[in-house]
Each structure stands twice: as C-alpha cells, then as structure tokens.
Design a protein around this nucleic acid. Structure first.
Length: 698
RNA sequence: GAGCAGUUAGCUCAGUGGUAGAGCACUUCGUUCACAUCGAAGGGGUCGCAGGUUCAAAUCCUGCACUGCUCACCA
C-alpha cells in the first residue's frame, strides 16, 4: 500500500466495482424494513454545483447506513428538464448565433432543446458517480419520460373533472423579458427608489385635485379614483366632475377603506388590469378592466402615440410626464420615494401584472390536506422551524397559476373547441371531438405546465413507473431531503399533490438542509466570484474529503461555510484512515491483553453513538463523533497503546473492521479501497467482500 | 410592515440547567519502524447587553441592541 491514500487511483474503479456488483439495487424482499429517498432531480442540462454535492453527501450517508443495516434501501435518481431555466439557457445560445426562439416553430424548438439537453445530461450522472452517490441507476427517471408525462396528465385531468382546475382571466405576474407568466412564488420583491409624481386632475368647473402615482403612463385609460370614506377632505368629491388630464374623460369616484388618507394626497387612481390590489377593488366595485400594457412590455395602442402608445413603459412614462409638465399638470415630483416592486426571480426585470387567460389550481382544499397531514404528524419535519415555515406557506397560498408560455416542458393537454369555445381535457391523447358539443375541430393550448406542477408529483410519478411493485413496496418514501430555498416551491407541493392523487403522504420525514456559503459566510454567487466547483474539489482532494467537509462544521439545517482548508483537513482524515489500516494490516498477533476489555467497551459506545445520531438524522454530529473517535481515540490512543504492548493486535484489528464500517457512509471510497483492495482481504473479518454490503456493526 | 433565525476562542461553527468545546489558524517541542496529509504540549473566550427564575444559567423567562433570511398589493 502507498504511503498516502491516492484517491485518483481508487475512486473510479471502486464505483465500477459497486455498479458491477449491483450493490445499489434493492431486493424487494417481503417483511423487511424499507428505507427510501427520492433524490431531488438536478437540472439535466447543467453541471452539478456545490449545493448538489451537499444533498448527495447527506443522502448518501443515510442510504449507505440503512443499506448496511439490512433495510431494503432505494435511492432513486432523476433529472429535471427545468422548464424555464433550460429554455432560457438555450435561448441565450440562440442569441449568440444571432437567432431567437421566434425563428422556429414550437416542434422544432422543442426538438432542438431536447437534443441539447440529451447531449449534456450525461455529465450530471457522471458527476453524481464521482461524488459516490449510491443511487440505483437502473431506476433513473427524467421528468419528460413519457410515462411520467402520462401521470402528470392524469392528475391534471382529475383536477379538472373534480373542478379544482379552472381557466380564468386574472391578473398574473408576467415577465415581459422571459415572455411568460409566473406564479406568485417566482416573484421577488425588492426595494427601489422611483419618482412619485403628483399629478393634477382638473375639475370641470375650476380648480383641480392632486393624485400621487408612480405609474403616470397608464393615466390615459384610468377612469376611476378612490378615496377613503372617512376622509373629510374628499367628502364632496363624488358630486364634483373630475376630468382625466389626458383623455378628458370624466373620472368616477369610489370610496374604499383600503385607501390610506395619509399617503400621498389620499386619492388613488385605479388601474384594474395591472395591479393586484386594484384588481381586487375593481371586482368588489364592479369596475371593468382595461389592459394597457401588452405582453411585449409596450403600452398598447388604446393610448395615443402622443402619450406613449406603442412605446415601452419607460419611454411612455417619459412622454406622459413631459406632456403633463407642458400642460402644467405636474404639481411636484418626489424623487426619493422608496417602494417595493416585484421582479422576476430569474431575470430580475420588473414583473408586469397583467390580465391573462391562464390555468389555475384552486389551492384551498389541497392546502388543507397538506396542513392536516403535517398536524397529524404523517409528515414530520426533522427541524421544527421548517415545519413552521411550511405551515405558514400552506395557510397563505393563492390559486396557483400553472401555465407557462414556453415550449420546453409538458404541454397542457387541453383542447379548445373552435365552435363552442369549451375546453376538452384528456390524459394525453388528442380528443376526436369536443366534450361539450361534439364539434370535431379542436385546437390544443400552446402553453406548458409550470415545472413545479410536474415535479410536485415526482415521488409517486417515479415509483409508479420504475419497476413493477416499486410503488406498493416503497411508497410513502422515508425521507425527503432538500435545501430550504425550495421548500415552498417543491416540498409543500409534493405533499399536497401526493395526498390528492394517492391519498397518502409522499414521505414520512422532511430533512431540510441549509445552503453552502463561502469561508467568510458569504452567499455564493457567480458575480462574487466565490463559486466552489465540487468536481474540482473531488479531483484535488478526493470525493470523501469533499463529502466530509460538506456535512462537517455546521448543523444540517443551517448554512455551512465551506473552505478549502476544511476540505484539506478532511483529506488528511482520509489519509489517516488509510495509514492506520496500513499499520494494522501487518499486525497478525492473536493474544489477548487485560486492557482489551476496556477497549471493547468503549468501542460499543462508539457504535451506539454513531448509530443514534444517524437514526435521529443528526448527520453533522454523527460525522464529528466518528471522526473524533477514530482519530483521537482509536489512532492516537489505542494504536499507541498497542505499540507499547498495552493492547492486543487482535483488538486493534477488530476495532479497525468496526471503524471501517462506521466510516463507510461518510467516506465510502477510502474505506472501500482499504476493504476491497487492501488490508481487508482477510476473510476472518468479513461478512461481505464488498464493504458497501457489509453489516452495520451493531 | 410581518414572520423566522442568529449573536460562544483570531476565523467558521457545535454545545439547551451542573466545573466553557471542535476544526482551521497560532506558539513550543519532536527524524523511535502507520501517517509531517503526523505526534506531544500550549496560548486564547467575564458565551451581545440589562434584568429575572434557580442551590446552580451559554443553556429557561422578560426587555433592549445588532446581524441575517424569508414574506408583504399601500398608489
């Protein structure tokens, strides 16, 4: 054996050994405990980032532990088509070639993206292997596998039949840059400084009132003003004739308590089509909605060119303000007005609320299912604070807009009748006739599902389509492990949709982990230049070292600050395992010593400690205890005692076998290298020629 | 504006009622046949502040300060 552990020589051949022996494929034996995790599917198109490596480390520790314990263990890998993310990346590529998505019809574009993704998806699988992920590749699923799509369609159809899906025109969050609507969750709110314009609205007889607004560009179509009924200043406003300063139309006055008399001048102009708040007021007061911003982000030509019709909002606003100023209708402009605006989570541009026909899921009954399951502890959160977060989300959901105006995704199986305009929903096949009027000319909706609508069905969609009997055997799965940033997007939706479709929760335990930060505790981002490439670290220090580093030094549920120093330290630890084994392999003595008893006693305690921590999902504590016990007890004390003749060589050998097993989930490669290719070729100590299949020492 | 966290050694973090801990960094020493990717020894913290409960508080309670994250329709 080499003097230092060489991860480069060992890792690939060890993963091959595992794969060749099918150690990751469960045997569906009756009457045994099961342990299963559905892997959060990484984006099929992208290389893994350091965040993926963290969940791999956590999940692989649990999976390997349970496999060694003798549970029938399944870790089901997958990849995600990641709708908008992937289409956006692809469009960027097109742009580099001087093309755009509009140069292709939807079928061609879909095919192009499909090929592009297929080309890249192998890299992700290869990287998961480099990280040592002991998942069952024979059960790998892609979110666009036909069988998966079929299940998603069935769910949609059932939701439709049970009236939990509706198509409606509502104000939705639309990104004019991405060219698609989003759900409320894809909108981020940022604080920004914008001018607040105080605009004079003339009275018909004489004088004027003043209205504060940040959106003067819509004034032309505005027809309603609102005041607080308690505001004495405007008690008689209703009897007065107020004119729109641009269109000269008469403004109608409504009273509503939502108006804050303290803000601005206490009068609000109502823009029903482009503001959620205003939409609500208008529904309440029966005010019609007029769309003024188009999906292209331009002011529509209901507004004359003079006032910005046909221009982008920014330019239209400039024009309108210039016109108003020319007419002396701007009283003042507050340039230091701070407010919060919605921006697209992806491209960071301003989200334009606008009315659109979209597919919505009614969330009330679904959320109730989820809430009940959590309250009844059918789904348990390992960390309580995240249970609070989940409950908070489930109690504050609006109807979920699931249609996206992109091609890369699962196309909505809805066909519109060309005669009666009713929708026919199927579970995938093209309907021959309208379900309402039997007319035979139908046109399919061009939108696709929100990616989260399909990934919200991932736990049962995968298990129902992998191998026969998988669903019955493994569902509900044992643990769902993912980062806290997608708790609202994914975790609560899996809970709701799974309960709705299968009547059962998708998983019993939710283990939420934190994000990776750099060594200063700073958020990792490309613009900061502090990204950590997991594969680079694997190549430099070895897979075991990176994995240990990722679960070391912070609680699983908290963010972890990852430094190269830390990973190097774990590399040293892997080397320590290697060298201790190298030392012990030459010790053949069989005699016993009086001190052995104390040794075995402590060894038992170590086994129990590590096991207990793993059983309660205390991954970092488990890692720390096995690290400390191996290095500072077994190596620093026990090996030294043995050298001095105060401990038998036999005890040391047996201790090493125990530690190799205890260490294996955390550092699978180096321990397997020792076991399979090194010291371990002594059958007396082994219940399995492959450590990954050896029996957990308890 | 609301919610949720956090504030412990130079740095990153553990520690939830009983004599302050780890990793890294630092200091000194060590070429004995596993490992210098090592070993031994050591320095360093009145556990954010102020009260309270208790025989006993980093740990429980109250208030305050600061930091972070998330949510949020006030024009």
């Amino acid at each position: 054996m080499d003097k230092t552990y060489n991860h480069k020589e060992n890792e690939a051949r060890i993963y091959e050994l595992w794969e060749k022996n099918k150690v990751f494929e469960p045997n569906l034996t009756k009457g045994k405990n099961t342990f299963s995790i559905i892997m959060p599917p990484p984006n099929a198109n992208d290389p893994l980032h350091i965040g993926h490596a963290r969940f791999v480390a956590i999940e692989d520790i649990l999976i390997r532990y349970h496999r060694m314990k003798g549970d029938v263990t399944l870790w089901l890998p997958g990849s995600d088509h990641a709708g908008i993310e992937t289409q956006f990346v692809f469009e960027k590529k097109l742009k580099e070639k001087g093309e755009s998505r509009f140069d292709y019809d939807r079928e061609t574009l879909y095919k192009m993206i499909w090929d592009y993704v297929s080309k890249n998806t192998g890299a992700m699988k290869q990287q998961l292997k480099q990280l040592g992920a002991s998942c069952d590749w024979s059960r790998h699923k892609f979110t666009l596998d036909p069988e998966i799509i079929k299940i998603v369609y069935q769910t949609f159809k059932r939701l439709w039949e049970e009236k939990k899906v509706y198509r409606g025109e509502k104000v939705v969050n639309y990104c004019t840059f991405c060219g698609t609507a989003y759900s409320e969750l894809e909108v981020n709110h940022i604080e920004r400084m914008d001018p607040l314009y105080y605009v004079k609205f003339p009275k018909a007889n004489r004088g004027h009132i003043t209205i504060a607004t940040t959106r003067p560009e819509t004034i032309y179509v505005d027809t309603y003003l609102a005041v607080n009924p308690k505001d004495k200043r405007y008690k008689n406003l209703k009897s007065e004739k107020i004119l729109n300063p641009l269109s000269n139309n008469e403004m109608k006055i409504i009273e509503d308590s939502f108006v804050d008399p303290e803000f601005g001048t206490g009068i609000v102009k109502i823009t029903p089509a482009h503001d959620f708040n205003d939409e609500e007021i208008c529904l309440k007061h029966g005010i019609p909605s007029i769309q003024v911003v188009g999906t292209d982000g331009k002011i529509m030509n209901v507004v004359p060119e003079k006032y910005g019709g046909g221009e982008y909002i920014k330019e239209a606003r400039r024009k309108v303000v210039a016109e108003l100023e020319k007419e002396g209708l701007i009283e003042k402009i507050d340039q230091s007005y701070k407010h919060v605006i919605g921006v697209c989570y992806r491209c960071k541009n301003v989200i334009e609320p606008m009315p659109m026909m979209q597919w919505f899921i009614k969330m009330e009954s679904l959320a109730a299912l989820g809430l009940k399951a959590i309250k009844d502890k059918k789904v348990k959160f390992v960390t309580k604070k995240y249970e609070k977060v989940a409950m908070h989300w489930l109690t504050n959901l609006r109807d979920w807009n699931i249609s996206r105006q992109i091609v890369w995704g699962i196309r909505i199986p809805a066909w519109k009748c060309q005669k009666c305009s009713q929708w026919t929903i199927t579970d995938g096949e093209t309907p021959k006739k309208c379900s309402e009027c039997s007319y035979r000319k139908l046109v399919q909706d061009i939108d696709t599902f929100d990616t989260w609508f399909s990934s919200g069905q991932w736990p049962f969609a995968t298990l129902k389509t992998t191998k026969k009997g998988d669903f019955e055997y493994f569902y509900p799965t044992t643990v769902m492990n993912t980062a806290y940033d997608i708790l609202p997007f994914w975790v609560i939706r899996m809970i709701m949709l799974s309960l709705y479709v299968t009547g059962k929760v998708p998983f019993e335990e939710v283990l939420i982990h934190g994000l990776i930060r750099d060594k200063q505790g700073q958020k990792i981002s490309k613009s900061k230049g502090n990204v950590i490439d997991p594969i680079g670290m694997v190549e430099k220090y070895g897979s075991d070292s990176l994995r240990m580093g990722l679960v070391w030094g912070a609680l699983t549920e908290n963010d972890v600050s990852l430094s190269e120093d830390n990973i190097r330290g774990q590399r040293n630890f892997a080397n320590k395992i290697w060298n201790a084994s190298r030392f012990i392999q030459d010790k053949k003595g069989n005699g016993e010593k009086r001190e052995d008893k104390e040794f075995y006693k402590h060894l038992e305690e170590v086994k129990k400690l590590v096991t207990k921590n793993l059983d309660s999902f205390k991954i970092s504590q488990a890692t720390e205890s096995v690290y400390t016990e191996f290095w500072h007890w077994f190596c620093d004390e026990c090996i030294e005692k043995c050298k001095k003749g105060e401990l038998s060589e036999k005890a040391l050998r047996e201790g090493l076998v125990v530690f190799l097993k205890l260490l294996h989930p955390f550092a699978p490669f180096v321990t397997e290298a020792i076991w399979s290719f090194g010291y371990a070729q002594d059958p007396r100590h082994f219940d399995s020629p492959i450590l990954a299949l050896a029996k957990w020492p308890l």
